[in-house]
């Protein structure tokens, strides 16, 4: 019962945040100087502009426009790109640009977790050892290198100079899996560098705290191996923050891949956002940004909810 009430409260909060955020986005679009229709279709005749104003709701004032956009979104009408006298529905673009972004994020997360879990555990276990200090400083440096710099430099070294992989492009994993993975190596690496650093540091901090717990001494006093103590008794209770932040990143990364997608020319959602901004397609841009922030808020609350329900310690606090 309490759980249901909690879920309900979250849903109300989430919808409020999304509605206000998207409304502010609409408002922002209306701040554009001049006629928004002229921005959308710069060289079109006045009749077409009027048509577009009507179609998008731009003629109806800010609330009318927002309402039309929102009800369209809820019915699956995501708006249009207006290009060269024609148009493309955003939903169609979305269908094409979501998979590349999701693959990119998924791979980056897998790589980052696969690296950071052992690194975090070992460097916490050997706190202040040489291994810990070297890992810490390397990761500290790595997290400070912006994704655009690491992306450009990676592509310069491995694609341009060594020629191991193509510097840009994307292939579907279903059509050409080998090429898909080859093209993904560099973008995934440049995304995973920062993630690995922050995950390792999070896990290390938590593991150091957990190692001081009585139940770890207790487990050790059973005479089981250090490895077993670390994996079975230390990792689980230390992993909450790590997993939470990994899950939260899923939402944030959808927007955060923009740079990597631009540098490696991957037709993902970040690429489309940048494109819609460059082409000043404000309706499409509003839709895409709204979806990204919805994804972010959605992941945020879902993760929060799940940890609340599943972690016995938070349950204990509630009781």
């Amino acid at each position: 019962m309490e759980t249901i009430r909690m879920i309900f409260k979250r849903i109300v909060l989430l919808s409020t945040v999304v509605v206000i955020a998207t409304f502010l986005l609409s408002l922002l679009m209306r701040l554009l100087p001049g006629d928004p229709a002229a921005v959308l279709v710069p060289n079109a005749p006045e009749e077409l502009r009027a048509l577009i104003r009507e179609e998008t709701g731009l003629s109806k004032g800010i609330f009318g426009y927002y309402w039309q956009w929102l009800s369209g979104m809820l019915q699956g009408d995501f708006g249009k790109y207006y290009l060269n006298g024609g148009y493309r529905p955003v939903s169609e673009v979305l269908k094409k640009c979501l998979p590349p972004s999701l693959f990119l994020i998924l791979y980056a997360q897998i790589v980052a977790l696969a690296l950071s879990i052992p690194l975090g555990l070992i460097s916490a276990y050997k706190e202040n050892s040489r291994f810990d200090r070297i890992t810490s400083s390397v990761l500290f440096t790595a997290v400070s290198i912006p994704a655009f710099a690491s992306g450009i430099i990676l592509s310069l070294i491995f694609a341009v100079q060594l020629g191991w992989v193509d510097p840009i492009g994307y292939e579907s994993p279903f059509g050409n899996p080998v090429e898909h993975f080859k093209l993904m190596i560099l973008p995934v690496t440049s995304l995973a560098i920062g993630l690995t650093s922050s995950y390792t540091r999070l896990l290390r901090t938590d593991v150091i705290a957990t190692l001081k717990e009585d139940y770890v001494t207790m487990a050790a006093s059973k005479g089981i191996s250090n490895k077993r103590v670390l994996w079975k008794h230390v990792f689980r209770p230390s992993s909450t923050t790590l997993l939470t932040s990994a899950a939260l990143n899923m939402g944030g990364l959808i927007g955060g891949t923009i740079i990597v997608e631009i540098i490696f020319v991957i037709p993902g959602i970040g690429y489309e956002i940048a494109y819609s901004i460059g082409a000043r397609q404000i309706v499409a841009m509003q839709t895409l940004i709204a979806l990204v922030s919805f994804a972010y808020v959605f992941f945020n609350s879902t993760v929060d909810l799940i940890t609340n329900i599943t972690d016995p310690r938070t349950r204990e606090r509630r009781v």
């Binding site: 945040v17 999304v18 206000i20 955020a21 502010l24 986005l25 922002l28 679009m29 701040l31 554009l32 944030g252 959808i254 927007g255 955060g256 923009i258 740079i259 956002i273 940048a274 901004i277 000043r280 404000i282 841009m285 940004i289 990204v292 922030s293 972010y296 808020v297 945020n300």
Partner: peptide, 17 residues
């Protein structure tokens, strides 16, 4: 609400407008 939009996207949107 402000944090719900990734910061790069938010500044992109603001600047583009």
């Amino acid at each position: 609400i402000m944090l719900s939009i990734p910061n790069l996207v938010l500044s992109l949107a603001l600047i583009s407008v």
